[in-house]
Amino acid sequence: MMSVNQICGELPNQFYVNFGKSFVGWMMAKRSSIYHKELGDRKRSLFANLEGKVLEISPRDGSNLRYYPPNIHLIGMEPDLQMHSYLRKQAKELGLNIDIRFGNGEWLDIEDNSVDTVVTTLLLCSVPNINYTLQAILRVLKPGGRFLFIEHIAAPQGSLLRKVQNTISPVWKTLTDNCYPNREIDIALEKAGFTSINYEYFQVRLPIVSPHIIGIATK
């Protein structure tokens, strides 16, 4: 049985956790609006030439669906079962053929060498093992297949923002479902074993996770 002191001692911590989650939830809502405005043209350009079998890992709320051409065979690998019916409805309204499956970045229920394109946006920051996920992506891509990505990354070493990211990382992960603000995704991509990789850096008007990359890696 817990003492009064134990309970009272935990209340402030729980208050800060709840407050932090509310703040991050508000920021994520704002981010969604910002992303639609700032990344719309980038996504439209990145996804313009999609064809064949396309796998999006963790499509979540379906924010990318509007940018996909209607003639692709789209597979959505989504770990949140509650989002499946919503994604199907969104896809139907947009005239997309979508196959929603249960899975995540480390467990892709897809045959080897069978996918023309894999898409991720803001995924690699939160997977438990980024190297394992990248190898899974390479496994399912056809030879010559492409990996299209938009991800936030760690700020440069020694910068003030990187110091802030490193300091806040333990709390940030708790409040944002395991998102690492200081993960060096660009370096992991370079070392993954793709035949070629082309990307560019850009900034988004958000605190902590403003540095981003957008690009294409080819198997």
Rank of each mutant, 00 (worst) to 15 (best):
V54L: 04
I213F: 09
S159L: 08
G62D: 03
I187Y: 07
D112C: 10
A136G: 00
W172D: 05
I57E: 01
I185H: 11
N129I: 02
Y16M: 14
N5F: 11
G105Q: 02
I216W: 10
V164L: 13
G25Q: 07
L148G: 02
P79N: 07
N166G: 02
Y67C: 06
H84D: 05
M28D: 04
F102G: 12
R205E: 14
W26L: 00
K191V: 05
R139P: 00
S32K: 03
K21R: 14
S85P: 00
D177K: 13
I197P: 10
M77G: 00
L55V: 06
S33L: 11
K173R: 14
K191C: 08
L87H: 10
I98D: 07
I110T: 13
L124W: 04
V171N: 01
L55T: 00
I213A: 08
N131G: 00
K173Y: 02
K30H: 06
V54W: 03
V171K: 10
D116M: 09
G145N: 05
P181W: 12
R139M: 01
Q165M: 11
I214E: 12
R139V: 00
Y180W: 14
A29H: 11
G105A: 13
I150R: 04
N129V: 04
I216V: 15
C125A: 09
R66A: 08
K30N: 09
H84L: 05
G158S: 12
H212S: 09
I208W: 07
G103V: 05
E93V: 06
L65V: 00
V204E: 15
N97Y: 09
N129E: 10
L87K: 08
P156M: 10
T167R: 15
S210Q: 08
S32I: 01
N113C: 08
D109T: 13
V164Y: 10
E10H: 13
S210K: 08
E190G: 12
N97W: 03
A217S: 11
E93C: 03
F149Q: 06
A155S: 15
R42E: 01
A217P: 07
Y199A: 11
I137F: 03
Y132D: 11
N129C: 08
S58C: 13
E78Q: 01
L74T: 05
E111I: 05
E184C: 11
H84T: 04
S63W: 05
P156E: 13
L189I: 14
R60T: 00
T174I: 15
Q157I: 14
V127S: 04
A217T: 07
K89A: 14
L65Q: 05
E51D: 14
Q165W: 06
Y16S: 13
L46Q: 07
A192R: 09
T120L: 07
M2D: 05
Y68V: 00
A136L: 00
M28L: 14
I7F: 15
I150Q: 03
N97H: 13
Q90H: 11
D112E: 14
G145D: 04
E38S: 12
L122W: 04
P170W: 06
Y16R: 12
I187N: 07
V54N: 04
P69V: 12
I153K: 05
Y16G: 04
